[in-house]
Simulated scan of single mutants.
Amino acid sequence: MLPEIRQRYNASFTEETYQAFVAQIKEDFPNTLEFRIAETPAFIPKALTQRLVQAGEDIIDVMIQPDFKAKTERAIPADQRVPNEPDTCTLLTLDFAVCKDEQGEYTPQLIEMQGFATLYGYQAYIGDMYKRFFYCPKGFTEYFNGLDRDGYIAELHRLFIGEGNAENTILLEIYPEIQKTRIDFAVTKDLLGIESVCLTKVRKDGRKLYYEKDGRRIDIQRIYNRVIFDDLQNYPDLVTEFKLTDNVDVEWIAHPNWFYRASKFTLPLLNSPFVPKSYFLHELVEYPADLENYVLKPLFSFAGSGVKLHITREDLDAISDKENFLLQRKVNYEPVVESPTGGVKLEIRLMYLWHEGEARPKLITNLSRMSKGEMIGVRFNKNFDWVGGNICFFEE
């Protein structure tokens, strides 16, 4: 996208430096890295940055409407509704494919959105690591809204800890020590002092929650939630004293109900040049004539599970619970990053925080993933190089 910078980066790249880069990450956070890191960050020109920011604002304009919660009530499964939901989505992430429009200009197209956690700690770390090991030009930043690294960490501290103590916030997960994103848990503890606590280790005392460390009872005031209800189904014998749906005195970051409200369920409510047309399957009077240009997505799934890229009318007719499916126009990723072994597709995740009392979420940083496969994701990118997780540096 920025040919001179890309050419200089690729010319300076060596496999030896990349291996040293990965080795240093494994040394800094032993036994935590379980996903592939791309050989390069992405460098984003101003024009595309402006479109990405505008795309986010278009989506947020819908989310702040007074009727948004009413329109998304059906998104929350009855048996998974959690009490004490706030009016705002504390954490918000928006995933965009980098494409080309009819004029040949780079443009973002929304793929997915989540009112849920992502790698807020790790992204600060990996940005620093790319700058430490590889060529990164001046005049580029991974942050937004005038933030630098210190300002970014201050934003995280304000949201996750506030005026309290770090030990009273927990990062809640099921068996955090085996999760694929556990490097983010380790970095979060390093940056903010927040402990990762397994759901099985949370104790209840009336409406109060606590955990134990070094023989001490530590009250839980805030939960940085990483538990997804779908994951609970993978552990049918899991014994917990605390159920996510219990009515307890804690502040959720982000509240589990927003996982469903800000999700694929939201896509048909959006109208923006940066959002591909999406339809609730049960509301379609007739299917689009060009079904080959659409993808079928289950509304209540995570991480690409159940997505069908190639569908027929017979496939759609056979679905009995059409209200639980979404038909979305396909997006054509452009191979915008030039690698030594060919063009690479890019997906950019904008990462927001929404502080209590503020009118809108605040864009603070990003995460990106590179792919040579049919879809973004590990199982579609086996045996490829110059693919995997990374970060974007945006032209200032």
Results as ranks from 00 to 15, higher is better:
Arg6Met: 05
Arg8Thr: 08
Tyr9Gly: 00
Asn10Leu: 03
Glu16Ile: 00
Glu16Phe: 00
Lys26Arg: 15
Asp28Val: 10
Leu33Met: 09
Glu34Ala: 12
Ile44Lys: 04
Ala47Thr: 15
Gly56Asn: 07
Ile60Pro: 02
Ile60Asn: 02
Asp61Arg: 03
Lys69Met: 11
Ala70Asp: 14
Arg81Asp: 02
Asn84Met: 05
Thr90Glu: 13
Asp95Ala: 10
Cys99Ser: 13
Cys99His: 09
Cys99Leu: 11
Cys99Val: 14
Gln103Ala: 15
Gly115Pro: 09
Phe116Ser: 12
Thr118Phe: 09
Thr118His: 07
Leu119Asp: 06
Ala124Lys: 00
Gly127Asp: 02
Phe133Tyr: 15
Phe134Trp: 09
Thr141Ala: 12
Tyr143Glu: 09
Tyr143His: 12
Leu147Arg: 11
Gly151Val: 12
Tyr152Glu: 10
Glu155Lys: 15
Glu155Arg: 15
Leu156Tyr: 10
Glu163Trp: 01
Gly164His: 10
Gly164Ile: 10
Asn165Arg: 13
Asn168Ile: 10
Thr169Gln: 07
Glu173Met: 10
Glu173Arg: 09
Ile174Tyr: 14
Tyr175Cys: 13
Lys180Thr: 15
Val187Glu: 04
Val187Pro: 04
Thr188Asn: 04
Thr188Phe: 02
Asp190Ala: 13
Ile194Glu: 05
Cys198Lys: 04
Lys201Cys: 05
Lys204Cys: 02
Lys204Asn: 03
Gly206Leu: 01
Arg207Val: 06
Arg207Ser: 09
Arg207Thr: 10
Lys208Trp: 00
Tyr210Glu: 00
Asp214Tyr: 04
Asp214Ser: 06
Arg216Asn: 13
Asn225Ala: 10
Val227Ala: 11
Ile228Glu: 11
Gln233Ala: 12
Asn234Gly: 14
Pro236Cys: 08
Pro236Thr: 09
Asp237Asn: 15
Asp237Lys: 13
Glu241Tyr: 07
Leu244Asp: 04
Thr245Pro: 06
Ala254Ser: 15
His255Phe: 05
His255Met: 06
His255Cys: 06
Asn257Pro: 08
Tyr260Arg: 08
Tyr260Ile: 08
Arg261Ala: 10
Ser263Tyr: 14
Thr266Cys: 14
Leu267His: 15
Pro268Asn: 14
Phe274Arg: 06
Lys277Ile: 12
Lys277Met: 08
Leu284Ala: 05
Val285Cys: 01
Tyr287Gly: 03
Pro288His: 05
Pro288Gln: 05
Leu291Arg: 03
Asn293Cys: 03
Val295Met: 08
Leu296Cys: 01
Pro298Lys: 06
Phe302Asn: 06
Gly304Met: 09
Ser305Tyr: 09
Ser305Met: 11
Leu309Ala: 12
Glu314Trp: 12
Asp317Ala: 15
Asp321Met: 07
Phe325Ala: 01
Lys330Cys: 01
Lys330Arg: 06
Val336Ile: 11
Thr341Trp: 00
Gly342Met: 00
Gly343Lys: 00
Leu350Glu: 02
Met351Glu: 08
Ser368Val: 08
Met375Tyr: 11
Ile376Glu: 07
Phe384Thr: 07
Phe394Ile: 05
Glu395Arg: 04
